[in-house]
Every structure is written in structure tokens, then in C-alpha cells.
Simulated assay, not measured.
Amino acid sequence: MNKSINELVQEAHENAKAKGWWDEERTFGEIGALIHSEVSEALEDCRNGHEPAEVWYETKNYDGVIVRFEEQRYPDWKPCGIPSELADICIRVFDVCGWYGWGETLERWCGSAKPEAGCEVQEKSPFAENLNIIHGNLVDCFRSESWRPFKFAIVVQNVEKLARFYGIDLEQAIAEKMAYNTTRPIRHGGKKL
């Protein structure tokens, strides 16, 4: 990546704060559920017949109708598809690590963490099965507070591996989604969580 993990953590967290996501206290359970939701959105794209590396961009036309494009011409066009959802998993992990001050720890663990047997995505496994492994690593974040940065590093590693298996440019997907997120309104126009 052109930016370090710690730089991405700081950037994602600063944007989330600017957009009002940390104006009110959040529980770790709420944070975890939001990350799980991104994993589930990747599964929904798969279930809807989208190929893992398929990307498209959406915007509303003058009549408020969503229009789909194959290329992103403007940063406020929403990146869509499994690459975008994988990016969202990482961005949410980066944000929470920024909140807890774990940026440097996450960066260090991303370079050296070794997942336990059965906790690592496999190239020959079905896409949905690999997403379930990512869910499992997120669940492990609740077991021990001191191990949360380690488990988040495993999540990021697994997302990177899954992207690599399917020829997804995760770095580009993260950059596009983070740029898009800066164009979004405060709390995405009124979401509570």
C-alpha cells in the first residue's frame, strides 16, 4: 500500500469523526455489528450474482433515480460491489482502531500476526465460506479486550488475502471508498448508528 496501515487508520477515523459518527458513545458490540454488516453486504453481492472483482459506481440523476456507471468519473459516485464491501470492512476496522489508539499496534500485527488453524481464508474455499471465517475472527474480538488489535489484524490480513485470491485491487478499493466517504453528508443524512 502507498499509505501505511497507521496512516489509513488515522485518515478513516478522522473522517468518521468529521461525519459525526463519534459524537455519541458507541459500544464495542455496536462497532462489531457494523463491521459484520459489511461482511454480510459482500455476501449479498455474491448472492446477487456479482463476480468478486466486479465494480460499478452509482449516483442519482436529476430525477433522483439511481444510475449505474462502469467507471468513476466523480468522487461522489458511490463505489459498489464486493471490492467496495471488502474495503468497508477494512475502513471500519481502521476507524475503530483509530478510536482506541491502536493504529501502530494494528500496523505491527498486520505484518506479523499468525492466525490460528482454521482462522485463515483459503484460496480453494468457496467465497461465502471465507467470509464466514472473517465473521469468526470478528466474533473473537469480543473474547479478550487485550487481543482485539491482534484479531482485527487477522481480519485485515484475511480481507487482503481474499482480495488477492480474486484479483481485487484492495488498495484502490479502499482509496476510492475513503474518497467517497469524504463526500457523504453528516451521519450519511441521519443514520442513528
Rank of each mutant, 00 (worst) to 15 (best):
C141L: 03
R148D: 00
K17G: 04
K161D: 06
G49S: 07
G101P: 05
M178F: 08
A175G: 08
S146Q: 10
E85A: 05
L43I: 12
V9A: 02
G190N: 05
G64E: 04
P115G: 01
K60E: 04
R108M: 12
C110D: 03
D95M: 13
E129I: 12
V39F: 02
I82S: 10
I82L: 14
G98T: 03
R187M: 08
K151T: 03
E129L: 14
L86G: 00
I134F: 00
K151W: 04
P83G: 12
L193D: 14
G32Q: 13
P79M: 06
G32K: 04
F69I: 00
G136T: 11
K161L: 12
E14A: 15
D140A: 15
Q10D: 13
E116G: 10
G32I: 09
Y100H: 14
P79G: 09
K177L: 03
I154P: 00
K124I: 10
W22C: 06
Q72A: 04
A113W: 02
N130R: 01
E85M: 03
F69C: 00
D23H: 14
I91G: 06
E30V: 09
T59N: 07
S146K: 13
H36A: 09
A179T: 07
A53Q: 09
W21Y: 15
L34V: 10
T105F: 10
S4G: 11
M1E: 13
Q122P: 07
K3P: 02
I5L: 00
E120Q: 13
A87C: 03
P149H: 06
V159M: 02
S37Q: 10
N130G: 07
F142I: 07
M178K: 15
E44C: 06
N15A: 12
K151D: 04
K177N: 11
E104I: 02
S125V: 09
H135V: 07
N15K: 05
I174H: 03
T105N: 08
H135E: 05
K191M: 13
G111A: 01
L193V: 11
W21D: 06
A12G: 05
E123P: 07
N132C: 14
G49L: 01
E30Y: 00
E14L: 14
S37F: 06
I91K: 02
A117F: 11
G29T: 11
V155Y: 01
S4H: 05
C110R: 07
W99K: 14
G101R: 07
I186V: 15
K17V: 15
